[in-house]
Design a protein around this nucleic acid. Structure first.
Lengths: 145, 145
DNA sequence: TTATATTCCTATCTGTTTACTAGGAATAGT
DNA sequence: ACTATTCCTAGTAAACAGATAGGAATATAA
């Protein structure tokens, strides 16, 4: 199973919410969780990596919350997934040749490396701005407004 | 971490070995394991799914072994990975919309679906014949001949 | 200065998956 | 009968996934 975990999936939705709130002051995690129907307690864990990658900025205390550090057009899905999921390569040997003594002549390794490039390129093709635009032009029914 | 497991990785190497032996009669798992420096006991587990997908064929007993069921040019890496790793989509909601009530209007789901297409296309771009050709034109040093 | 709202840090827990190892049955040539 | 091989079923230790929880730190507001 080659799957993105909930970190990457929920984290993307969190970032889309922040993007929709861009320029409107800090947004509460509570509100993000409510809009996306996710647990505040779980979303909390996604914050530290996003902060240390300087994708978001926080304000503590009452009237605190979170902001994007740059405009939604400058943040791609690749940035988000890379931070929350770790390396985008399908095999460790791609980024760390030393883990396998076959790396120097392994033909499958070359293919995993190409696969990483196509994944990276696809994800880099979407900015948060693109996603907000699409979000706003899509009808939302049910509990998630 | 969006990683291919050892099933997919070792299974690909196993299939490349069978491809190199294509037309030369059944090949022993013992020999495949020796050439790829992998455990016979572990490779055994990769056989049943490959057989039920009709990618390989087996002969039991003494002088038994394994064959590809079709020519290396007709088997792609996508076939192999799909069988050994399961669905190629990065999220279950892509192939089973019912698992999430957001599927009807979720914008991230659309992106995961596109990601699946690019992964599929990349993997479908390699046949075992391509890999054998590349293998034979690459120098191999060390214990894996 | 107290109360309140919020982020922040660390720990814990349960189930699943991964990467194996192992025992021995079934089958087929010699 | 003997031997070589595939085949089938368990088991297992470690890591990972997907949470929940307690409470400290910080900032605003009354």
């Amino acid at each position: 199973m080659i799957r993105i975990s909930t970190k990457g999936k929920y984290g993307t939705r969190l970032m889309v919410q922040l993007a929709m709130n861009y320029g409107k002051g800090p947004m509460l995690l509570k509100d993000i969780a409510a809009k996306e129907n996710l647990s505040v307690r779980y979303l909390e864990h996604l914050i530290p990596p996003l902060k240390s990658a300087h994708l978001i900025h926080s304000l503590r205390g009452a009237h605190g919350g979170y902001n994007l550090t740059k405009s939604p057009a400058e943040i791609t899905l690749k940035d988000i997934i890379r931070i929350l999921e770790g390396p985008l390569s399908p095999s460790e040997c791609v980024e760390s040749p030393g883990v396998c003594d076959r790396s120097g002549f392994c033909i499958t390794r070359d293919i995993w490396a190409e696969l990483e490039r196509t994944i990276s390129n696809t994800l880099a093709g979407y900015t948060l701005a693109d996603m907000v635009k699409k979000y706003l032009s899509t009808p939302h029914y049910g509990e998630n407004q």
